[in-house]
């Protein structure tokens, strides 16, 4: 894939901090207090999905930006996380947080298994293998469906479907959106902690070359497996968030094609920047909703995505996030120029 040509791109952490932090606080304030209160129910639910899919895209971008690895199974892992979160929530009535964590851990384990071929393969072969895994997950999910309050291992109810219990702190949509945004923020923190720390340095060495990593004493197997497990965990959390948001999950909503879409839009958004996954989340859920608002056929979205992907692959290897950064740079230069021209 494009991993060689993108190698010099800086990973997530190098975003200019002071400005970034300020922007983060501003975004948090708007996102957490003003926005949820001002939105219609429809947009509340849309943005809940956006937060979940931002985390899903973060999982894809982690693997791609840190190790140059393409996983086309991450949306399937959302389904895995969602399944386990629903199962334990309905079955044991545990608090939402515990269900969410269970979903994350379950998806991390499955993600780890999906990552095993990555120890020997990369590029196209890895992409194809992971896509086959996504296909397997799709088959399992459509065969067994999602738990909805019934008994037995599968937890399928024969009568009315029961909704997943929401967090104690976030019963209504407005509060749940705030909750989902906080969880997404925590996921970003978790990734940042990795990228800035020992795993990030080890991943950078592996990306440079395997001989470089070995000579530096990096346990390549362990760090690759860990990256897949972490990415699986994030996908599982995303699935649990989605389940909590809607209350239940639809067995037909996790086809392998969604995993491809998630990967493609992560590239369009910009896998190397922390804004990229947010852009991807918005494109995946808010953009179709917007079209719907304007009574435009939602399928147009797919076409636009295709064009966006071509655009990203041909002219904007750092995606929308890269272009935003360039734009900010240009504006800054212009402002700086003006300031210098002044007194």
């Amino acid at each position: 894939m494009a991993d060689q040509s993108l190698e010099v791109a800086s990973p997530i952490p190098t975003a200019r901090l002071p400005l970034g932090v300020a922007a983060l606080y501003a975004a948090a304030l708007v996102g957490l207090y003003l926005l949820p209160a001002a939105l219609s129910d429809y947009w509340l639910r849309t943005l809940i999905s956006v937060s979940a899919l931002t985390v899903a895209s973060l999982s894809v971008s982690l693997l791609f930006a840190q190790l140059g690895m393409v996983s086309l199974a991450q949306f399937g892992l959302l389904g895995v996380g969602g399944w386990f979160a629903l199962r334990i929530s309905h079955g044991l009535g545990v608090p939402f947080e515990l269900a969410l964590l269970t979903g994350g851990v379950a998806a991390a384990l499955v993600g780890l298994v999906i990552g095993l071929p990555a120890l020997r393969m990369r590029g196209l072969y890895l992409a194809i293998i992971t896509l086959m895994m996504a296909g397997a997950i799709q088959v399992l999910i459509s065969a067994f469906g999602f738990p909805d309050g019934g008994s037995g291992i599968l937890g399928k109810s024969t009568g009315t479907r029961v909704m997943m219990a929401r967090p104690f702190l976030a019963q209504n949509d407005e509060a749940y959106l705030r909750y989902a945004l906080v969880i997404a923020g925590l996921c970003y923190g978790l990734v940042l902690l990795h990228v800035r720390g020992r795993p990030g340095r080890a991943w950078a060495m592996i990306r440079r070359s395997e001989v470089c990593a070995f000579a530096g004493g990096v346990n390549i197997v362990a760090y690759k497996v860990w990256a897949f497990a972490l990415a699986g965990f994030l996908a599982g959390i995303a699935g649990g968030l989605l389940a909590g948001g809607v209350g239940q999950l639809d067995a037909s909503a996790f086809p392998a094609s969604q995993s491809i879409m998630l990967f493609a839009l992560t590239i369009v958004g910009g896998a190397y920047s922390w804004i990229g996954p947010i852009v991807a989340g918005l494109l995946l859920r808010a953009f179709p909703a917007l079209l719907n608002d304007f009574r435009v056929d939602g399928n147009i979205a797919t076409m636009v995505f295709g064009i966006g992907l071509l655009h990203a692959l041909i002219t904007a290897p750092h995606g929308v996030a890269g272009q935003l950064r360039d734009l900010v740079g240009t504006v800054r230069r212009l402002l700086g120029g003006k300031r210098k021209a002044g007194p």
Binding site: V8, A9, R201, A202, A204
Partner: peptide
């Protein structure tokens, strides 16, 4: 085999 997107210090830290 210097890692390009780590600083010199991070290269040694790695």
């Amino acid at each position: 085999q210097v890692v390009e997107n780590l600083t010199a210090g991070e290269n040694v830290a790695a």
